[in-house]
Design a protein around this nucleic acid. Structure first.
Length: 309
DNA sequence: CGTATTTGACCTGCGC
DNA sequence: GCGCAGGTCAAATACG
């Protein structure tokens, strides 16, 4: 697998050069025309700015098209990687799967990790625990549960498992996913020597999402993050994380980290990822006063143009 | 000084 | 009822 490849999208929506076409910059005196020569000159100026706007619109359109293509490419690569991983997992699953089965009994609670969700989150089971629990807690089979999480996620989206390769020497149980988390506990579990860290979304209590992060017992270089619930606020915080939205600078960056290199294999975030991206872009555009002003200028310019013809 | 993290104590559910 | 294990709380501590 080509895990070292970075997936990096950068949108540079620079609207600075739109300022010149913003109507406020046009001298108001020109609206008071007394002679036909002045009138002609005025319309020439308007035509000029209209054509500039048209050019700008074309430019933005083509940029938009390029970005869409880039996004499609990124998704294509992402799904290819995911497909590849699943292949590897199914190979790994093969005969020795049974030997990893834990002889000890599993507590029923283990399988119902969603039961204690706060803030009115349903205590109902959000995923099929009976078939899932052994894989979920047996590190030897965590990768299998990862695959299972994909299939289960479509109807039980409350819980997802993310596998992130990390530097072994790095003892911090942090999985950068763009959201801000507040650690509220750490525990050593029975079947894994490395401690499990408990995090709540920093938007809590309004956001009920929690995550547990623990190194895989089988492969300490892999961090296993289990997410519970869904965020009820806009995506990744702009100030931190690998998926960032820097509204002020009109730059939206998404990065999927893979180990010292980068790859976060978010399984059931597939659908929400696109949504988050769109939200980020929309957010960064709508919060950009220059962009909205330029857009308004372009639209009003078009309207004026139409009213003339 | 405010905020985040750490960590031991406590709570809860389950199996025996 | 007791013990175990996972999850959470909250006081203490660290950090910027």
């Amino acid at each position: 697998m080509d895990c070292s490849s970075f997936l990096d999208i950068s949108l540079n929506l620079n609207t600075n050069n739109l300022d010149r076409s913003f109507p406020e910059k046009l001298p108001k005196k020109e609206l008071k025309v007394s002679t036909s020569a002045d009138l002609k000159r005025k319309w020439m100026v308007k035509d000029e700015s209209a054509s500039e706007l048209r050019e700008e619109l074309n430019r933005v359109n083509s940029e938009n098209k390029k970005l869409t293509e880039m996004l499609a490419t990124v998704y294509e690569k992402y799904y290819a990687l995911q497909h590849h991983l699943e292949k590897l997992q199914s190979r790994r699953q093969s005969p020795e799967t049974d030997q990893f089965e834990q002889p000890t009994k599993r507590r029923k609670q283990d399988s119902d990790e969603s039961l204690s969700l706060p803030n009115g989150f349903s205590s109902g089971k959000t995923y099929n625990s009976s078939s899932n629990e052994d894989h979920h807690h047996d590190p030897k089979n965590q990768l299998l549960s990862c695959k299972r999480a994909v299939t289960d996620s479509f109807d039980k989206a409350k819980i997802s498992t993310v596998y992130v390769s990390a530097v072994c020497s790095d003892t911090s149980l942090t999985v950068k996913d763009g959201y801000q988390w507040r650690k509220y506990g750490q525990k050593v579990t029975r079947d894994n020597p490395s401690p499990r860290a408990y995090f709540r979304c920093s938007f809590a209590p309004s956001c009920p999402v929690k995550k547990k992060v623990q190194r895989s017992a089988e492969d300490p270089s892999i961090l296993v993050a289990t997410y519970e619930g869904t965020h009820n606020h806009l995506g990744p915080n702009a100030s931190e994380g690998d998926a960032t939205s820097q509204v002020g600078s009109r730059t939206v960056t998404l990065e999927m980290v893979h180990g010292g290199h980068s790859l976060a294999l978010e399984k059931n975030e597939r659908e929400t990822m696109q949504e988050v991206l769109v939200q980020q872009m929309a957010s960064s555009l709508t919060k950009d006063s220059k962009f909205t002003a330029a857009l308004a200028a372009a639209i009003s310019g078009r309207l004026m143009e139409q009213s003339r013809t």
